[in-house]
Design a protein around this nucleic acid. Structure first.
Lengths: 192, 192, 192, 192
DNA sequence: GATGAATGAGGTTTCATTCAT
DNA sequence: TATGAATGAAACCTCATTCAT
């Protein structure tokens, strides 16, 4: 029984994401993906131009999507604390909703990050900008915005890594209060 | 003209580490490594059993070595703040001394972590233990030791990631004061 | 231009058999086989899992097939002389029909015989059993059934070897009367 | 402790013979041989020019040696029965003394037989000649000397094969009386 | 939309052999 | 005599990709 086009396409996405994260991009073969999906290798080429294009598609779609959601959240919030709260929530929500995508976008080391252009919406850049603007407005102490952005991002990326390796239970959203508190402390902001 | 044994072995180590980190394990071929070293592919097999064994050798040696240095530092220090200071220093020193090894051990996603056995000295585990023991002694507020360990590790691993991508200048050791301060704040400890 | 599946599969079988017998298993490369078939090496792996599996497939299929035909012939005949006549005919017919398969199964020294399990139909074992049962029934003098089976088998295997090296002309079926007579004499049975 | 030259040379011979017979010439590597001997691969080249020369040395030395002993035995005996008895003894003695050499010379399929020249003493040829001369002298019935030689050789080669595969116990010399009797019967000679 | 045979390049590994030591 | 690092070719096999069906 042939599946609908969109069904197979979605299954390819899911399998490829899972395998890229589990085994790494270079160690995942098109055959691995086809086998996981339950089709032959040739069928994959009906949906994607090739392995590189598939990886880039998965990456850029997720990368831009996350960036847009982060941008919306930070824009809707007032004050650096609320902006960061919203963004941390967004990261945690993505992890809980689609851990493979989260890992692929933010933890795994594939070559895709090198293809990101400066004009693409960029989650990391958005966090940096929010921090930098808060410094300019004097909401937090002036300093190296990149360093502070890294410290903040570490608060969510490292717990996510721990969750991947089973050191933290899921959903990660349950850790939001602790992570928010740590974030505020780092920035010397009053607790919520 | 054959080189001394230890010379070639060391060069293989360096090249493999560099390439595994740059391109990923699965996307690095033995030919890539041989070309970087300046020998033929066959020569690699006189020094290592194969690609997997080479990766595991690099990983386990570095992993255990780092763990041992961390253990020494934390054991030599008194109080959780000093223990964490020492360990953070050790991480930063490794990054500045050998960024490829740092990335391979702590940032890159290869399959090696899955082969780590519970009885091997483990950097992550050491950080967790130091945190847990501080909680038991009441030096810091009780809580989930794994989560706190993740937050602390994030303070060094994420800046390192930023340094890899050029968002932070090197040496990373210069950031030690800022990172220490953030660490103390997270744990609600007085500044040094 | 892809051929029909069964066509290529059969051609691989024929070429592999021929080369394994001519050059020996270990001295025949997959490239040799592919070149003989007229496809690339990779194509072979769509039909067989690998070189070992290919050899085992050829061997076990032929080994069991011959055993089944021998079994049918001996079961259909009455008296040890007729049973042995039928089996000798079967051996000679196989040699004349497919000398490469005959050599691969019965003359060549590859590792395949070691993989034969006791529950597989086995040509040598069938000859031994027929001899042993004739001894039990008193049709031939009691003695070491394995030794007598060896002597009988030698009557057909060694002429086949001579034919392979050009010391005897083909078809070998023409030698059946002489071989039968020798067989009867060895067993002290009256001539036909 | 370095070994004497002749010692190592002999050990290479023994190991190579054993491995060529066990695994086949093409599936035996110089490394296999060196490992069995207990030296490095390079050392083998102090004693033999290469793998091919090693195999040919083992083969031709044994082949000619056996032929010379067979020739001596048949020349010393009077009458075809005694000549064949002597030769069969010689075959069985070789099997019991050095089964690996026996297998290498007479059972295994390596490429060496193709290199045998017509002017080399040749065990198979000697058996054929003795049979042919007996036919000329009317000691046995006239017929195809090659076929009769094959039948006689089969009486010793096939039991040897059975002994290799454990179907017959050793020493094979114990089977001499049975084999002689079978041989006389085939040739319609009176029992001894 | 999917299959499956095929390709040609390239993967990891092993080979026989050489040579400075 | 022997070692052991090295080579260059070739081993087996897998890769991403194409295409007739």
């Amino acid at each position: 029984m042939p599946r609908s086009r969109s069904d197979t396409r979605q299954r390819i996405r899911d399998c490829a994401l899972k395998l890229f994260v589990e085994k790494g991009f270079g160690s995942t073969s098109m055959r691995d993906i086809a086998h996981c999906v339950g089709v032959t290798e040739g069928a994959l080429y009906r949906h994607f131009l090739g392995k590189d294009e598939l990886a880039w598609h998965l990456f850029s779609e997720g990368f831009v999507g996350l960036a847009e959601r982060l941008e919306r959240r930070q824009a809707a919030a007032h004050g650096v604390a609320a902006k960061l709260d919203g963004m941390l929530d967004e990261f945690l929500a993505l992890f809980d909703a689609d851990p493979a995508l989260f890992s692929f976008l933010l933890l795994a080391q594939h070559g895709q990050l090198d293809k990101v252009t400066a004009d693409m919406p960029n989650p990391v850049e958005i966090v940096r900008r929010v921090v930098a603007e808060a410094m300019e407005r004097g909401e937090i102490a002036a300093g190296n915005a990149n360093l502070v952005a890294a410290l903040v991002l570490g608060l969510v990326l490292q717990p996510a890594t721990f969750a991947v390796y089973g050191r933290l239970t899921r959903p990660l959203g349950l850790r939001a209060p602790d992570i928010r508190r740590a974030c505020r402390r780092i920035l010397d902001l009053p607790p919520s």
